[in-house]
Simulated scan of single mutants.
Amino acid sequence: MSEATESSPATSRRTLLCGAAAVLAAGGTVTLAGCGSSGDSSAKSSAPKGPVDLGPATDVPVGGGKVFREQKIVVTQPAEGQFKAFSAKCTHAGCVVDQVKKQQIQCPCHGSRFAIADGSVQDGPAPTPLPAYAVTVEGGNLKVTPS
């Protein structure tokens, strides 16, 4: 037996399952979540530091919202002139929410839905509300400060 074989780390269950899912996905379209390893720093994303300028407040419709995917922030406007900001990472599996529709922030991975007014869970499996961020409008632009 070679030394390389003896010193090689064992394949983890998660790596094996993710690899198998990737092979199956090659034949069709499948969305996977949660396949990052716990040691993979790219799978972990922290909230942006300091105020983040997200552009014109007019881009966020009344009774709806807008997902800023790159910043992992979602901003809603439940009533005219009332802006709310939340983490765009679902509290279930960490997927980034993808849209605001029917007055709900929607996660594409497992169907969780959150209220645009306070980020509370409207439909699971998410166990907790989306974390809220401070949001202001300065010079017509949205400024969000993650907690």
Rank of each mutant, 00 (worst) to 15 (best):
G36D: 15
S112P: 01
L24E: 09
S120F: 08
A33P: 00
L16W: 13
G64F: 11
D53V: 01
T29Q: 12
F114S: 01
A4K: 10
V60T: 00
P108F: 15
Q99D: 11
K44C: 07
V60N: 02
D59R: 02
V96Q: 00
P129R: 10
V135H: 01
A20S: 06
D59N: 07
P131Q: 14
T31A: 15
S42C: 07
N141M: 03
T136N: 08
A10F: 04
E3V: 13
L54S: 04
H92A: 09
P51N: 10
A85C: 02
D59P: 02
V52P: 01
E6L: 14
E6N: 05
F83H: 03
L32E: 09
V74C: 04
Q77K: 08
M1R: 13
E138S: 11
P146Q: 08
V67H: 03
T15V: 11
K66M: 04
I116Y: 00
Q104H: 12
V135R: 00
K84Y: 08
S46Q: 11
G28C: 13
A93L: 15
S8F: 14
T128W: 06
D53S: 07
K72V: 11
K66T: 00
A93Q: 14
T128Q: 13
S37R: 14
T29S: 12
Q103E: 09
A85T: 03
A43L: 04
V62G: 01
A47W: 07
A57R: 03
A43P: 02
S38Y: 10
C107A: 06
V52D: 02
S87W: 05
K66N: 03
K49I: 09
T128F: 07
P131A: 11
G111W: 00
Q106C: 06
F83K: 01
Q106W: 07
E3Q: 13
A33T: 15
S7V: 15
S41E: 11
A88N: 02
T76E: 02
Q77R: 15
G27R: 14
S2Y: 09
S8K: 15
Q71H: 09
G124T: 02
G34A: 13
A22L: 11
P146D: 09
V121M: 09
T29W: 12
L54E: 02
S8M: 12
A57L: 01
Q82P: 01
D118P: 05
G140I: 05
Y133Q: 01
Q103F: 00
S41I: 14
G50L: 13
E3T: 08
A57E: 02
Q99C: 14
A117F: 06
D53H: 01
R13G: 07
P9L: 13
S2I: 06
G50A: 11
S147N: 10
G64T: 04
A4P: 01
R13N: 09
A22G: 08
T136I: 06
Q104A: 13
G28N: 14
P127Q: 14
S8V: 12
